[in-house]
Design a protein around this nucleic acid. Structure first.
Length: 267
DNA sequence: ATTGCTTCCTGAGCGC
DNA sequence: TGCGCTCAGGAAGCAA
Protein backbone atom coordinates (compact mmCIF):
# COMPACT_ATOMS: atom_id res chain seq x y z
CA UNK A 1 0.00 0.00 0.00
CA UNK A 2 1.83 3.05 -1.12
CA UNK A 3 2.03 5.68 1.61
CA UNK A 4 4.33 8.71 1.70
CA UNK A 5 7.69 6.83 1.71
CA UNK A 6 6.62 4.54 -1.13
CA UNK A 7 5.27 7.42 -3.22
CA UNK A 8 8.42 9.46 -2.50
CA UNK A 9 10.59 6.53 -3.62
CA UNK A 10 8.60 6.21 -6.85
CA UNK A 11 8.77 9.97 -7.47
CA UNK A 12 12.56 10.04 -7.06
CA UNK A 13 13.01 7.09 -9.37
CA UNK A 14 10.60 8.43 -11.98
CA UNK A 15 12.40 11.77 -11.87
CA UNK A 16 15.70 10.17 -12.83
CA UNK A 17 14.10 8.11 -15.58
CA UNK A 18 11.45 10.18 -17.38
CA UNK A 19 12.00 13.91 -16.78
CA UNK A 20 12.85 15.35 -20.20
CA UNK A 21 10.90 12.72 -22.12
CA UNK A 22 8.03 13.65 -24.43
CA UNK A 23 4.70 11.89 -24.00
CA UNK A 24 3.72 10.29 -27.29
CA UNK A 25 0.41 8.81 -26.23
CA UNK A 26 -1.53 7.33 -23.32
CA UNK A 27 -3.34 4.08 -23.97
CA UNK A 28 -6.21 3.36 -21.58
CA UNK A 29 -6.80 -0.37 -21.22
CA UNK A 30 -9.49 -0.04 -18.59
CA UNK A 31 -12.09 2.77 -18.71
CA UNK A 32 -12.14 5.36 -15.87
CA UNK A 33 -8.40 5.01 -15.29
CA UNK A 34 -7.31 8.17 -17.12
CA UNK A 35 -9.59 11.10 -16.35
CA UNK A 36 -9.20 14.42 -18.16
CA UNK A 37 -11.19 17.57 -18.84
CA UNK A 38 -12.74 18.50 -22.18
CA UNK A 39 -11.89 15.49 -24.33
CA UNK A 40 -8.22 16.35 -24.12
CA UNK A 41 -6.00 14.81 -26.79
CA UNK A 42 -3.30 13.10 -24.74
CA UNK A 43 -0.85 13.33 -27.67
CA UNK A 44 -0.68 17.09 -26.93
CA UNK A 45 0.57 16.82 -23.32
CA UNK A 46 4.16 17.68 -24.24
CA UNK A 47 7.45 17.06 -22.47
CA UNK A 48 7.76 16.16 -18.78
CA UNK A 49 9.63 18.92 -16.94
CA UNK A 50 9.08 18.02 -13.28
CA UNK A 51 7.84 15.25 -11.01
CA UNK A 52 6.93 16.07 -7.41
CA UNK A 53 4.83 14.68 -4.58
CA UNK A 54 2.08 16.04 -2.35
CA UNK A 55 0.78 13.59 0.23
CA UNK A 56 0.24 10.37 -1.66
CA UNK A 57 -0.22 12.10 -5.01
CA UNK A 58 2.41 11.99 -7.74
CA UNK A 59 2.43 15.29 -9.68
CA UNK A 60 3.78 15.20 -13.23
CA UNK A 61 4.18 18.62 -14.93
CA UNK A 62 4.76 19.20 -18.65
CA UNK A 63 6.17 22.06 -20.70
CA UNK A 64 2.67 22.77 -22.02
CA UNK A 65 1.48 23.44 -18.44
CA UNK A 66 -0.46 20.21 -18.13
CA UNK A 67 -0.48 18.47 -14.76
CA UNK A 68 -1.03 14.76 -14.26
CA UNK A 69 -2.06 13.67 -10.77
CA UNK A 70 -1.41 9.99 -10.20
CA UNK A 71 -2.84 8.24 -7.14
CA UNK A 72 -1.85 4.59 -6.60
CA UNK A 73 -4.35 3.84 -3.80
CA UNK A 74 -3.59 0.31 -2.56
CA UNK A 75 -2.29 -1.71 -5.47
CA UNK A 76 -1.14 0.80 -8.10
CA UNK A 77 2.32 0.43 -9.63
CA UNK A 78 4.23 2.50 -12.18
CA UNK A 79 6.82 0.41 -13.98
CA UNK A 80 9.30 1.81 -16.51
CA UNK A 81 9.96 -0.47 -19.51
CA UNK A 82 10.99 -0.53 -23.16
CA UNK A 83 7.91 0.06 -25.31
CA UNK A 84 7.86 -3.50 -26.66
CA UNK A 85 7.90 -5.15 -23.19
CA UNK A 86 4.77 -7.16 -22.40
CA UNK A 87 2.11 -5.65 -20.15
CA UNK A 88 0.57 -7.54 -17.21
CA UNK A 89 -2.90 -8.90 -16.59
CA UNK A 90 -3.72 -5.81 -14.53
CA UNK A 91 -2.23 -3.05 -16.64
CA UNK A 92 -4.84 -0.27 -16.70
CA UNK A 93 -3.01 2.35 -18.76
CA UNK A 94 0.25 2.79 -20.65
CA UNK A 95 2.14 6.07 -21.15
CA UNK A 96 4.36 5.93 -24.23
CA UNK A 97 7.36 8.21 -24.73
CA UNK A 98 8.89 9.25 -28.02
CA UNK A 99 12.16 7.40 -27.26
CA UNK A 100 10.59 3.93 -27.43
CA UNK A 101 10.10 3.56 -23.66
CA UNK A 102 6.91 3.49 -21.59
CA UNK A 103 5.44 3.54 -18.10
CA UNK A 104 2.79 0.95 -17.38
CA UNK A 105 0.17 1.74 -14.76
CA UNK A 106 -0.67 -1.59 -13.18
CA UNK A 107 -3.47 -1.71 -10.60
CA UNK A 108 -5.05 -4.96 -9.41
CA UNK A 109 -7.86 -3.42 -7.37
CA UNK A 110 -8.50 -0.61 -9.85
CA UNK A 111 -8.91 2.18 -7.29
CA UNK A 112 -5.97 4.19 -8.57
CA UNK A 113 -6.27 6.84 -11.28
CA UNK A 114 -4.44 9.29 -13.49
CA UNK A 115 -6.16 12.68 -13.57
CA UNK A 116 -5.07 15.24 -16.16
CA UNK A 117 -5.54 18.98 -15.58
CA UNK A 118 -4.83 21.94 -17.86
CA UNK A 119 -2.87 23.79 -15.19
CA UNK A 120 -1.77 23.37 -11.58
CA UNK A 121 -4.39 25.97 -10.59
CA UNK A 122 -7.13 23.51 -11.51
CA UNK A 123 -5.92 20.77 -9.14
CA UNK A 124 -8.27 21.69 -6.27
CA UNK A 125 -7.87 18.20 -4.91
CA UNK A 126 -4.44 19.12 -3.52
CA UNK A 127 -5.80 22.12 -1.60
CA UNK A 128 -7.68 19.90 0.83
CA UNK A 129 -4.51 18.15 1.98
CA UNK A 130 -2.96 18.91 5.36
CA UNK A 131 0.69 19.74 5.84
CA UNK A 132 3.61 17.66 4.64
CA UNK A 133 4.99 15.77 7.66
CA UNK A 134 8.57 16.27 6.48
CA UNK A 135 8.17 20.04 6.06
CA UNK A 136 8.88 22.75 8.65
CA UNK A 137 5.14 23.46 8.87
CA UNK A 138 4.68 20.14 10.62
CA UNK A 139 5.64 21.06 14.16
CA UNK A 140 4.25 20.80 17.69
CA UNK A 141 2.25 24.04 17.40
CA UNK A 142 0.53 22.95 14.20
CA UNK A 143 -0.27 19.53 15.61
CA UNK A 144 -1.26 20.63 19.14
CA UNK A 145 -3.82 23.11 17.83
CA UNK A 146 -5.45 20.58 15.53
CA UNK A 147 -5.42 17.76 18.08
CA UNK A 148 -7.03 19.91 20.76
CA UNK A 149 -9.91 20.82 18.45
CA UNK A 150 -10.84 17.28 17.45
CA UNK A 151 -13.05 14.65 19.04
CA UNK A 152 -11.65 11.49 17.57
CA UNK A 153 -8.99 8.91 18.28
CA UNK A 154 -5.33 9.55 17.55
CA UNK A 155 -5.33 6.74 15.00
CA UNK A 156 -8.25 8.18 13.01
CA UNK A 157 -6.64 11.60 13.17
CA UNK A 158 -3.27 10.47 11.83
CA UNK A 159 -4.95 8.69 8.91
CA UNK A 160 -6.95 11.78 7.91
CA UNK A 161 -5.24 13.41 4.92
CA UNK A 162 -6.80 16.82 5.73
CA UNK A 163 -4.54 17.14 8.78
CA UNK A 164 -1.33 15.36 7.78
CA UNK A 165 -0.82 14.34 4.17
CA UNK A 166 0.77 11.02 3.36
CA UNK A 167 0.33 8.68 6.32
CA UNK A 168 -1.47 5.36 5.84
CA UNK A 169 -2.33 2.40 8.01
CA UNK A 170 1.11 0.81 8.25
CA UNK A 171 3.07 3.90 9.30
CA UNK A 172 0.34 5.10 11.68
CA UNK A 173 0.56 1.79 13.54
CA UNK A 174 4.33 2.11 13.70
CA UNK A 175 4.28 5.76 14.81
CA UNK A 176 1.86 5.02 17.65
CA UNK A 177 4.03 2.12 18.77
CA UNK A 178 7.16 4.28 18.83
CA UNK A 179 5.28 6.95 20.79
CA UNK A 180 3.90 4.34 23.23
CA UNK A 181 0.39 5.66 22.58
CA UNK A 182 -2.68 3.41 22.41
CA UNK A 183 -4.52 3.86 19.08
CA UNK A 184 -7.86 4.60 20.77
CA UNK A 185 -6.53 7.51 22.85
CA UNK A 186 -8.51 10.68 22.15
CA UNK A 187 -6.68 13.53 20.43
CA UNK A 188 -7.75 16.14 22.98
CA UNK A 189 -6.23 14.17 25.87
CA UNK A 190 -2.64 14.21 24.59
CA UNK A 191 0.00 15.99 26.65
CA UNK A 192 2.55 18.44 25.21
CA UNK A 193 5.25 15.79 25.52
CA UNK A 194 3.11 13.28 23.64
CA UNK A 195 2.53 15.77 20.82
CA UNK A 196 6.28 16.42 20.64
CA UNK A 197 6.87 12.71 20.51
CA UNK A 198 4.40 12.31 17.63
CA UNK A 199 6.16 14.97 15.58
CA UNK A 200 9.58 13.49 16.27
CA UNK A 201 8.68 9.88 15.52
CA UNK A 202 6.55 10.66 12.47
CA UNK A 203 9.52 12.42 10.88
CA UNK A 204 11.94 9.76 12.02
CA UNK A 205 10.02 6.79 10.68
CA UNK A 206 9.12 8.41 7.35
CA UNK A 207 12.75 9.37 6.72
CA UNK A 208 13.98 5.92 7.63
CA UNK A 209 11.36 4.26 5.42
CA UNK A 210 12.40 6.49 2.48
CA UNK A 211 16.04 5.49 3.06
CA UNK A 212 14.92 1.86 2.70
CA UNK A 213 12.82 2.57 -0.40
CA UNK A 214 9.48 1.91 1.30
CA UNK A 215 7.56 -1.06 2.65
CA UNK A 216 6.60 -3.95 0.36
CA UNK A 217 4.05 -5.93 2.36
CA UNK A 218 2.11 -7.05 -0.67
CA UNK A 219 1.73 -5.07 -3.88
CA UNK A 220 4.03 -2.06 -3.62
CA UNK A 221 6.89 -2.10 -6.12
CA UNK A 222 9.50 0.42 -7.21
CA UNK A 223 9.73 1.77 -10.76
CA UNK A 224 12.07 -1.10 -11.70
CA UNK A 225 9.58 -3.60 -10.18
CA UNK A 226 11.85 -4.30 -7.19
CA UNK A 227 10.53 -4.40 -3.63
CA UNK A 228 11.34 -1.89 -0.90
CA UNK A 229 13.09 -3.07 2.27
CA UNK A 230 11.39 -1.33 5.19
CA UNK A 231 9.03 -4.29 5.81
CA UNK A 232 12.04 -5.91 7.50
CA UNK A 233 12.19 -3.07 10.03
CA UNK A 234 8.53 -2.88 11.08
CA UNK A 235 8.13 -3.17 14.85
CA UNK A 236 4.41 -3.84 15.32
CA UNK A 237 2.41 -3.88 12.04
CA UNK A 238 1.63 -7.46 11.03
CA UNK A 239 3.57 -8.86 13.99
CA UNK A 240 2.61 -11.48 16.58
CA UNK A 241 5.05 -10.04 19.09
CA UNK A 242 6.31 -6.48 19.33
CA UNK A 243 9.92 -5.30 19.25
CA UNK A 244 10.12 -5.84 23.03
CA UNK A 245 8.76 -9.38 22.77
CA UNK A 246 5.23 -8.73 24.09
CA UNK A 247 2.13 -10.20 22.43
CA UNK A 248 0.69 -7.81 19.84
CA UNK A 249 -3.06 -7.25 19.87
CA UNK A 250 -4.90 -6.98 16.57
CA UNK A 251 -8.21 -5.14 16.45
CA UNK A 252 -10.40 -3.43 13.84
CA UNK A 253 -10.95 0.30 13.98
CA UNK A 254 -13.01 2.01 11.29
CA UNK A 255 -12.54 -0.98 9.05
CA UNK A 256 -8.76 -0.94 9.40
CA UNK A 257 -6.49 -3.52 11.00
CA UNK A 258 -4.88 -1.99 14.03
CA UNK A 259 -1.83 -3.64 15.56
CA UNK A 260 -0.63 -2.47 18.96
CA UNK A 261 1.13 -3.69 22.03
CA UNK A 262 -1.09 -3.34 25.12
CA UNK A 263 2.05 -3.55 27.26
CA UNK A 264 4.12 -0.84 25.55
CA UNK A 265 1.14 1.34 24.55
CA UNK A 266 -0.70 1.83 27.84
CA UNK A 267 -3.15 4.67 28.52
C1' DA B 1 -19.67 21.30 10.94
C1' DT B 2 -17.88 17.02 12.36
C1' DT B 3 -17.32 12.25 12.65
C1' DG B 4 -17.88 7.56 11.24
C1' DC B 5 -19.71 3.95 8.15
C1' DT B 6 -20.16 1.98 3.48
C1' DT B 7 -18.58 1.27 -0.87
C1' DC B 8 -15.55 0.40 -4.75
C1' DC B 9 -12.21 -3.91 -6.47
C1' DT B 10 -9.38 -8.47 -7.03
C1' DG B 11 -6.50 -12.04 -5.20
C1' DA B 12 -4.81 -14.70 -1.36
C1' DG B 13 -5.70 -17.71 2.23
C1' DC B 14 -8.57 -20.66 4.78
C1' DG B 15 -11.98 -24.38 6.18
C1' DC B 16 -14.69 -27.94 4.55
C1' DT C 1 -10.59 -29.80 -6.61
C1' DG C 2 -13.38 -26.18 -5.78
C1' DC C 3 -16.65 -23.50 -3.41
C1' DG C 4 -17.78 -19.79 -0.29
C1' DC C 5 -16.20 -16.86 3.00
C1' DT C 6 -13.06 -13.22 4.97
C1' DC C 7 -9.56 -9.96 4.62
C1' DA C 8 -6.41 -6.38 2.63
C1' DG C 9 -7.36 -0.56 2.65
C1' DG C 10 -7.52 5.01 0.51
C1' DA C 11 -10.78 8.10 0.13
C1' DA C 12 -15.35 9.62 -1.95
C1' DG C 13 -19.87 9.88 -0.65
C1' DC C 14 -23.28 9.63 2.42
C1' DA C 15 -25.62 9.29 7.05
C1' DA C 16 -26.09 10.63 11.70
Amino acid sequence: MPELPEVETIVRELRSKIVGKSIKDIDELRPETVISENNLNVCQLGKIIAITRRGKYIIVSTDRKFVLLVHLRMTGKLIYLPDDAPVTKHTRAIMYFTDRTKIIFDDIRTFGSIKIFQSIDKTKILEDLGCEPLSKLFNTEYLADLLAAKRTTIKNFLLDQRYIAGLGNIYVNEILYLCKLPPHKLTNTLSDDEVKCLVKNTRKILKKAIEHNGTSISDYRRVDNKTGQFQNLLKVYGKDTCFEGHAVKRIKTNGRSTFYCPECQKE
